[in-house]
């Protein structure tokens, strides 16, 4: 028997009743999709398209009106299915009165970890997300980016095979968001499946293998990233030190061969890269943990 899908959603429909009204709101309608193990799957859609509802059904926070969802073959209706999943909600707040380290211990205990094993795991994750120096500070004093990172750490506490991330970079500055993106790629290398909900398309395009686009509760487009975004009848070609004469001859040859040159222009770096270059790739949050890797990671 083949390995079960990391997430299997079958004919999911979710209808919310509106209090004191007759009409109802259909958040998700007849949605089916599968996320295979090892993928980074991007679930896209405008606000109110049903992304969050779909995620909540997968996590058992909301019950489906019809249809079913499974995590690694276990129904979301059962608590056990949550063993294999780590979740980072949108704009998470954790208990303000706990320190970063205490937060990880709390969530670790919820997952049945304890003692030295939990302590080691929590130290390891704090290092992973770069919060060692802030480990004993109250979460209440954390910045947005630090909250997102401690959220990522708690989602990983029981070493889940699947991560569900809701807008993981919302409100985080570019350097922080780049770090989170790098972490995602690292998880992928380790074989962790990621379901990423976002409407920051640029970021999704950088990391995701497969994309699903929701609109008004329906899946309107789905497939591997390349197949969705590549323009099949066009070809790009980058040249360095090309003289105007060379460009003219290329255009002439193309015309002779019956191809059309659509545009010749100077390539542009992304604004993100430019921003990172002039700010040296270090955000204010990250200044608590000077990391030598930054230079390599962020070099364009």
């Amino acid at each position: 028997m083949a390995d079960p899908a990391a997430i299997a959603i079958r004919n999911l429909t979710k209808i919310f009743p509106v209090p004191f009204r007759k009409e109802k709101v259909t958040a998700v309608e007849d949605l089916s999709l599968e996320v295979q193990p090892g993928q980074i799957y991007g679930l896209l859609g405008p606000n109110g398209s049903g992304k969050s509802t779909t995620m909540k059904v997968v996590l058992g926070l909301v019950s489906p009106t019809s249809g079913s969802t499974e995590i690694f073959g276990r129904s979301s209706l059962h608590v056990e299915s949550r063993e294999a999943v780590g979740f980072l909600p949108e704009n998470p707040y954790f208990y303000k009165f706990l320190t970063g380290s205490e937060t990880l211990h709390f969530f670790g205990r919820l997952c049945g970890l304890s003692g030295p094993r939990l302590a080691a795991r929590s130290r390891e994750l704090l290092a992973l997300v770069g919060l060692e120096t802030a480990a004993n500070r109250r979460v209440g004093s954390y910045s947005k980016g630090m909250l997102q990172r401690i959220g990522l750490a708690q989602a990983l506490i029981q070493d889940p095979r699947l991560l569900v991330l809701d807008e993981p970079t919302a409100g985080v500055d570019p350097a922080g968001s780049r770090e989170i993106r790098d972490l995602l790629l690292q998880f992928k290398q380790r074989g962790i499946t990621v379901l990423l909900c976002s409407h920051l398309l640029g970021q999704v395009q950088e990391v995701c293998d497969r994309i699903g686009i929701l609109h008004q509760g329906r899946l309107v487009s789905e497939g591997p990233l390349e197949s969705l975004v590549s323009v099949e009848d066009q070809t790009e070609c980058l040249l360095r030190n090309a003289s105007p004469e060379l460009l003219r001859s290329i255009q002439a040859q193309a015309a002779a061969a019956g191809a059309e040159v659509i545009q010749i222009r100077k390539p542009q770096t992304t604004l993100e890269r430019h921003f990172l270059k002039v700010t040296h790739g270090v955000s204010r949050d990250a200044s608590t943990q000077p990391s030598p890797q930054h230079a390599d990671v962020h070099a364009p």
Binding site: L59, E80, R82, E83, G86, L88, P89, E90, Y93, Y95
Partner: peptide, 14 residues
Amino acid sequence: EDRTLYTILAKPVP
């Protein structure tokens, strides 16, 4: 309000 409920119930906690 703090969504801590989501993070807790997304763990294997009945």
